[in-house]
Design a protein around this nucleic acid. Structure first.
Lengths: 178, 178
DNA sequence: TCCCAATATCTTGATGTCAAGATAACTCGA
DNA sequence: TCGAGTTATCTTGACATCAAGATATTGGGA
């Protein structure tokens, strides 16, 4: 009986297939980046499942948590929200419309800048997001159970290195969102 | 003059904010999983940019590469394609329709199974995808330039561990795609 | 003070995706 | 041989997202 050799994932199979078909190409980048993409898709499914029981959608959660973690008075501009969630301005307008209609946020003109708007978490919004967040953390912890604490930290560090160039606070780099 | 302390990314700021607002929660899972999600979004933008110059869309690329790397005769069923690309069957039907209309694939009934269909890459589809793939690999290599080869392998290994439970070949686990 | 580029948000139209369910064909055990 | 359950694909309708551009406001330099 043979068991538990180093387990393969779909990316191992995908890379092996490329080596067969295009031995001239170095597909090493896929070992990392294909895994990031695929894992992200799987995660998104998990999130949806976790949220279903809390009557909240994934896109709602993203906006509400950004407000929640900003602290008192739980209020941010649409611009700050779209930078936090990596969506376009049109998408954010639409999201805020629907969250406001659901009573989870309110919208008011920014007294300091007449172009601006401030979006504020309501009590209902806070309750909703707190419950969902606790549950999400529980499930995410399970997904990470295959790695010990040290490995998780190593993974976080490596990912951070890749992320820094994108997140550099308003350096010369523009990530193209507006 | 102070410079180049261990650089922060957006997730560091996000985690710090949570620790302030909800010191009762252990948000460690976000260190890994938030980074995976955010990196994936950034990657998707990069892909779009890389593909724009090859007149190909990201979703087209995903389908065409699956066919390309499957080798002669570059032919797969829609079912195999949706498993490779992690989309639903409705999405795949739609994608194949449009790829066929663009002359990048053909569709024919499966002679072995009258429920089935076989999707085949055309010469035009192959040329398109090969050019785009070479370019994508070039750009992905740049994104990974911040990590040396050893670190990239470590990262790939850690990600694989997280992915295996999702990709386990048709074990008891069902990932919910159909 | 005036003007213009930059900023903040919203609007519009096209498009891709998903969930749910319909249809048809296959498989295997009784 | 029959039928129930499974499998493969497609259809439908709702909906979220994006890109591009419109509108209003601000701020800094001439």
């Amino acid at each position: 009986m043979t068991f538990s050799r180093p387990a393969e994932d779909e990316v191992d199979r995908l890379v092996a297939a490329w080596k067969q078909e295009r031995p001239d190409l170095d597909v090493a980048p896929l070992e990392v980046l294909s895994r990031v993409s695929r894992l992200s898709r799987h995660l998104e499914r998990e999130r949806r499942a976790a949220f279903a029981s809390h009557d909240i959608e994934s896109w709602e959660f993203d906006v509400l948590t950004a407000l929640r973690r900003s602290g008192e008075p739980y209020e941010l501009s649409p611009g700050a929200l779209l930078r936090a969630t990596l969506v376009t301005s049109g998408t954010m307008t639409n999201r805020i419309d629907r969250l406001a209609a659901a009573g989870l946020v309110t919208r008011r003109p920014d007294p300091e800048d007449r172009r601006g708007v401030l979006v504020r978490l309501t009590r209902a919004g806070m309750d909703r997001v707190d419950a969902a967040f606790a549950d999400l953390l529980r499930r995410e912890r399970e997904l990470l159970a295959g790695l010990d604490q040290h490995e998780q930290q190593a993974l976080a560090r490596l990912l951070r290195t890749l992320l820094v160039p994108f997140d550099a606070p308003s350096d010369a780099l523009d990530n193209g969102l507006r």
